[in-house]
């Protein structure tokens, strides 16, 4: 799959494309990430993509003939048409001695391997350095994009009886595989919980961005539905805050600071395609991102300068571009020397 080719696609081209159709029909996590990042890179294709998708979706809303009433009847007919199966008589035979010994050794090894794995129920820790973005595939095939200077922790194997759980420090974009079939009854293993900074996020299957830095957590929901609750509160069902697509919340520790609707929710995840974006940021917001994601030290002449604000949207692909934009817009001097940024008045 290549972004470049899709940029030239027309409505018919999309309707003829295998991976596009698979995405509309099945919508698994991997293709979600691909198509979302494609639309971020080529926003002008959004309309034609949505058109093609609507045509397929509306086409599929047709009558499904299942004939469930006759399922047993047809099966009984098949069963009756097949000649009686002969059950092979159980034979007893003696195993040679060396075989017995080999078998018991094999069982012994198997047991110790099992014991060893039980004891060492390993957790995987994925860490990114400053400025690095990593894609992580979880045991259930859900996808996590991990931003710079962040850590994601989870257990190696997820069993079917417990909820899927991950721990996040830093910033990550989650595209969770939806496992729940019956909305009236949710199995434990169909739940997915993200733990971060005193906040728990419970989801079924959805995509969202979590940033958990400096004792602050912010969450932007792109699709689906999630519930946010405090880590130490006993897990009372539906006791938390329920977020709908486009919602954005910001917590300081466990205090809700901001709750608003995002105009362009997908902007929250633009960093996954290596784009640096801000909406109405203060100089402080920008510098915090440079510190947290890229490891810069900030040296500012006058603390008050940090409150200066840039109105509107910033979308750049490099730090140099960002710094020169900040410097011209706010008419201040911004110098980069090594891993230090020095801000002075002009």
């Amino acid at each position: 799959m290549s972004n470049q080719n899709y940029a030239q696609y027309t409505l018919t081209d999309f309707l003829e494309d295998d991976s596009f159709i698979q995405w509309v029909i099945n919508g698994d996590a991997k293709s979600n990430v691909f198509w979302q990042s494609f639309l971020i890179s080529y926003p002008e294709k959004d309309k034609v993509v949505q058109e093609a998708a609507s045509i397929i979706r509306v086409y599929r809303k047709q009558v499904i003939f299942t004939n469930d009433d006759h399922r047993e009847k047809v099966w009984n007919r098949i069963d009756a048409s097949i000649p009686k199966r002969t059950v092979s008589p159980t034979k007893t035979f003696r195993l040679p001695l060396y075989f017995k010994v080999a078998a018991s050794i094999a069982i012994l090894i198997a047991c110790s391997v099992m014991l060893w794995t039980l004891k060492n129920n390993h957790t995987t820790v994925v860490t990114t350095s400053y400025g690095e973005v990593k894609a992580v595939t979880l045991p259930d095939q859900s996808i996590v994009m991990l931003n710079g200077n962040s850590t994601l922790t989870y257990e190696d194997s997820w069993d079917n009886r417990a909820a899927r759980e991950v721990w996040i420090k830093g910033e990550a974009y989650f595209d969770i595989r939806h496992l729940n079939q019956d909305t009236a009854f949710v199995m434990p293993s169909e739940r997915f919980i993200v733990h971060g900074n005193g906040i728990d996020i419970r989801v079924l299957g959805t995509s969202f961005n979590v940033k958990s830095r400096r004792n602050k957590t912010n969450i932007a929901l792109l699709s689906g539905k999630i519930e946010v609750s405090y880590a130490d509160s006993a897990s009372v069902p539906s006791g938390g805050l329920v977020m709908m697509p486009g919602d954005y919340v910001e917590y300081s520790g466990q205090k809700l600071l901001i709750k608003k609707k995002l105009l362009r929710p997908h902007k929250a995840a633009t960093w996954t395609v290596r784009e640096i974006t801000f909406t109405d940021p203060s100089l402080n917001d920008i510098m915090e991102t440079l510190q947290d994601n890229y490891g810069y030290a900030i040296n500012v002449e006058d603390k008050d300068m940090m409150d200066m604000k840039i109105e509107g949207e910033i979308s750049v692909t490099s730090i140099q571009e960002l710094l020169s934009l900040v410097s011209t817009t706010l008419s201040i001097r911004v110098e980069e020397s090594g891993k230090e940024i020095i801000i002075t008045r002009k």
Binding site: T10, L11, D46, K47, V48, Q50, E51, S54, G246, L263, R264, P265
Partner: peptide, 18 residues
């Protein structure tokens, strides 16, 4: 349908298709 799903400004009818 598009506006229901996305936050794009309403395009005029003439530029909906490429």
């Amino acid at each position: 349908i598009l506006n229901g799903r996305t936050d794009l400004a309403t395009p005029s009818a003439s530029n909906v298709y490429p």
